[in-house]
Computed example of a mutant assay.
Amino acid sequence: MKPNFLSLPIGASDDAADYFGRELAFEVDPVDLAQDLAAARTDGYVLVETRSAGAYAEAHLPGAICLPYREITAESTRDLDRNLVYVCYCESIYCNAATQGAYRLARLGFTVKRLSGGITTWLAHGYPVETGVAVPWTA
């Protein structure tokens, strides 16, 4: 008996490469990010906590700025460097605050990616977090 998923159309390898390449263009793997942070490779991007300021205070990725997605506007982002990539993250795969934050930033002309799995996956890997209230971000 044929597996159910094999009864559905299967894309050609060129189509698959295009599809997964587009997906990777917008996603950051937590392992890669943790390795970059550990090696102090932090140029060119900013980590963006898109949950609430309270969630940020409880735990956030090292060096992340606090920019709750509901507060992302032209005014709140006017001092952000448009030459950087903004890596948005939220709670987990069950939360869409990172998606909403990335969407709002992209609509304002920023280059964005989303951290796969959010802070839940980050913590599950045992990677470090910081605590404390947000301070205004400066370039």
Score class of each variant (00 low, 15 high):
135 V>D: 02
131 T>V: 08
51 R>F: 03
25 A>R: 12
13 S>R: 09
103 Y>H: 11
50 T>L: 00
54 G>N: 07
24 L>D: 12
70 R>P: 00
57 A>C: 03
64 A>N: 01
7 S>D: 15
73 T>G: 09
88 C>R: 09
96 N>V: 05
112 V>L: 03
115 L>P: 00
46 V>C: 11
106 A>H: 14
31 V>G: 08
56 Y>D: 01
16 A>R: 06
135 V>M: 06
115 L>W: 01
87 V>G: 01
90 C>K: 10
55 A>K: 15
113 K>E: 07
129 V>K: 05
105 L>P: 13
122 W>G: 09
4 N>G: 10
110 F>E: 11
2 K>V: 15
44 G>M: 08
13 S>F: 10
89 Y>N: 11
127 Y>L: 06
90 C>F: 12
123 L>D: 10
56 Y>F: 15
31 V>A: 14
50 T>H: 04
114 R>K: 11
87 V>W: 08
46 V>G: 12
36 D>H: 08
139 A>F: 05
124 A>V: 01
74 A>N: 06
26 F>R: 05
93 I>C: 03
86 Y>F: 07
92 S>E: 08
106 A>T: 10
27 E>G: 03
138 T>H: 07
49 E>I: 01
116 S>A: 14
12 A>I: 04
93 I>A: 08
10 I>S: 02
73 T>F: 07
98 A>N: 01
5 F>R: 13
41 R>F: 00
89 Y>R: 09
52 S>T: 11
38 A>Y: 02
106 A>V: 04
99 T>K: 02
90 C>A: 14
131 T>L: 05
127 Y>A: 14
104 R>S: 15
51 R>P: 02
53 A>S: 06
11 G>F: 10
132 G>I: 06
4 N>S: 13
39 A>F: 01
135 V>F: 04
122 W>K: 11
128 P>L: 13
36 D>F: 05
120 T>D: 12
131 T>A: 14
85 V>G: 00
94 Y>M: 06
47 L>T: 07
29 D>G: 08
114 R>Q: 04
110 F>C: 11
32 D>H: 12
28 V>Y: 12
130 E>T: 10
67 L>F: 00
139 A>G: 09
108 L>F: 12
39 A>M: 01
83 N>V: 02
66 C>Y: 03
56 Y>L: 00
88 C>V: 09
19 Y>W: 11
48 V>T: 00
22 R>E: 13
109 G>P: 14
136 P>Q: 04
120 T>I: 05
69 Y>H: 15
124 A>Q: 15
81 D>G: 06
70 R>V: 06
42 T>H: 05
48 V>L: 03
115 L>A: 03
58 E>A: 11
13 S>K: 11
72 I>G: 05
122 W>C: 10
112 V>F: 15
38 A>V: 01
101 G>M: 05
75 E>Y: 09
112 V>A: 02
80 L>Y: 14
117 G>T: 00
6 L>F: 13
91 E>I: 04
61 L>W: 08
100 Q>H: 10
